[in-house]
Amino acid sequence: MGNLVQAELRKTTTTGLWWGLLIPTAVLALGWGLATGLLGQFFVDFASSNDVDEVSDFLGVSPDQWKVSLFGMARAINISTIFPMIFGALAISGEINRRTITTTFLTAPSRMQSMLAKMLVYVMWGAIYGLAIMLFLGIGVVITSEPGQLPDAGGWMMLTLVCVLSSILMTMFGVGVGALIPNVAGTIVLLLLYFLVIENVLHLVLAYLEVPSVIGFLPNGSINGLTGSVSVDLFLSTAGVVPKEIEDVLRAIAGAGGALDWWWSGLVFLAWSGIVFAGGWASTQSKDIT
């Protein structure tokens, strides 16, 4: 198994795809970080000039101490992890497309081991992407935000954790879809369409039907919940009793309307990744490589 992991690792480091996708990931994270600070500033100025006593009361701090950057950061993580997902999606579909899968299977004791080795290597890459996202996002946010709007040390830790987790899970999801749909273009188009369009439309429909709680169980809804719920928790960390409606609104702002608690969200998305990977594994296991 160690041999196969090393082989898979070498496959990823001997072509330029990893940095080719890491560059736009970093740029996107940095851009969102910068924009988050600017928008947060604008929002705080707006809030300070209005009558927001009620919110300030339950938060226990004045608007200039609201950690509004958390919302932008949650959304930045959600959108940036699209790239590691694409990276993962190419793991198996790319090999089938380039026909290197033949040699891969000829040199592995079993297809199962080969796919597991791949998964392990891509989990590692997911973590690397996650750390890069957090790094560039952090730089962007710190440059444009007032100190009062930034999370504290514990908040940074927590965000980094969910960012890395989210990136790993998205990569795994991509690997599974890439195995299920052994076609590079098909896989990427489907993933982008689903995560950027289809599920967002679904969310609107579910909200309209007044069953927003279903959203938290959908793939995009649950992965957004992982980061979004942590952001809301951190934002409200100074607060006492928070009305449910306000919490719901805050979750929506964080891009995670209808989401479950962060750890529940993570488990739900892990289940989605597992289902997709199992499907991909089953189809790869029995596939005729002609």
Partner: peptide, 25 residues
């Protein structure tokens, strides 16, 4: 086995290609 002369990633060097599978074997 030599099944087809197509199973290569075009951006990988010959040595790196072989090192990938040397690790697997």
């Amino acid at each position: 086995a030599v099944l087809e002369a197509q199973g290569f990633h075009p951006a990988r060097s010959a040595r790196n290609h072989l090192r990938v599978y040397a690790a697997a074997v």
